[in-house]
């Protein structure tokens, strides 16, 4: 299992691995927002938590189609399925690798982009915490979407259509934490709900992803 994780990380970091693309996308989206809504700093600081959450979500979504498709194309997935690893742990490791290469950098970059959007000072901590709790759910749910569409040519657009509605609760609670944090309000309730969604997704969705992958492999 560790071998698979290390291989995925290595692949992401090598040339053409796509590491940093999600991060660059996050940056670009954030930079485009003031161009579209105007430079008033008061408006920007009000929408900053939501915009940063949406940007992180889109950056996550963008990198999902490589998650399983590459292993599918070169036949690794067939071979992994006949290896002594259960598919449930394979998809969990894949999601973990996705989170380390995409989710974690987004969490770390978010405060910097928060500065660009005049995020109020108390918001930084809660933005980072909410992303830290929420991005694992995004990776796990995304892995389910990637497993559903892995056998399809040009499955990327369909995958977005399937994954986005599943992202709704995570997005709502995550950005609520960041928004309340920025407005210096109590964050406990949405924070717990967000953590609950993440924990439940991590615990249960790999079974659905593995089941779907088994169907797609046959």
């Amino acid at each position: 299992m560790i071998a698979l994780l290390l291989r995925d990380l290595k692949l992401a970091l090598r040339a053409g691995g796509g590491f940093g693309l999600g991060l660059a996308f996050f940056l670009i989206v954030t930079v485009m927002v003031p161009f579209s809504v105007g430079p008033q700093s008061e408006l920007l600081s009000r929408i900053a938590p939501g915009v940063l959450w949406l940007g992180a979500l889109l950056a996550c979504l963008l990198s999902l189609d490589r998650l399983l498709a590459l292993d599918w194309e070169d036949g690794s997935l067939d071979l992994l399925a006949t290896a002594p690893l259960p598919l449930e742990s394979i998809v969990t490791i894949k999601a973990l690798a996705h989170w380390i290469t995409t989710g974690l950098p987004l969490v770390l970059a978010a405060p910097v982009l928060g500065v660009l959007l005049n995020l109020p000072a108390p918001g930084f901590l809660w933005l980072v915490i909410s992303l830290l709790l929420g991005t694992p759910a995004l990776s796990v749910i995304g892995t389910f979407g990637a497993a559903l569409t892995v056998g399809l040519k040009r499955g990327g657009l369909l995958m977005s259509l399937l994954v986005m509605p599943l992202y709704v609760p995570t997005l709502i609670f995550g950005s609520e934490v960041a928004r309340r944090g920025a407005e210096d309000m109590a964050v406990q309730t949405p924070l717990l709900l967000l953590a609950g969604i993440s924990a439940a997704s991590i615990a249960l969705l790999p079974f659905a992803s593995a089941a779907v992958l088994r169907v797609n492999l046959r």
Binding site: A3, L11, G16, D71, D74, G75, D78, L79, L80, A83
Partner: peptide, 27 residues
């Protein structure tokens, strides 16, 4: 069972030794 399909499941950006070591440790 060890299964060899039409495609070899190789990663172009890994070296020969890295590819093999990976499969060895998976098994």
């Amino acid at each position: 069972i060890a299964y060899a399909a039409h495609s070899d499941g190789l990663k172009p950006t890994l070296t020969v030794a890295e590819n093999l070591t990976f499969w060895a440790s998976v098994f």
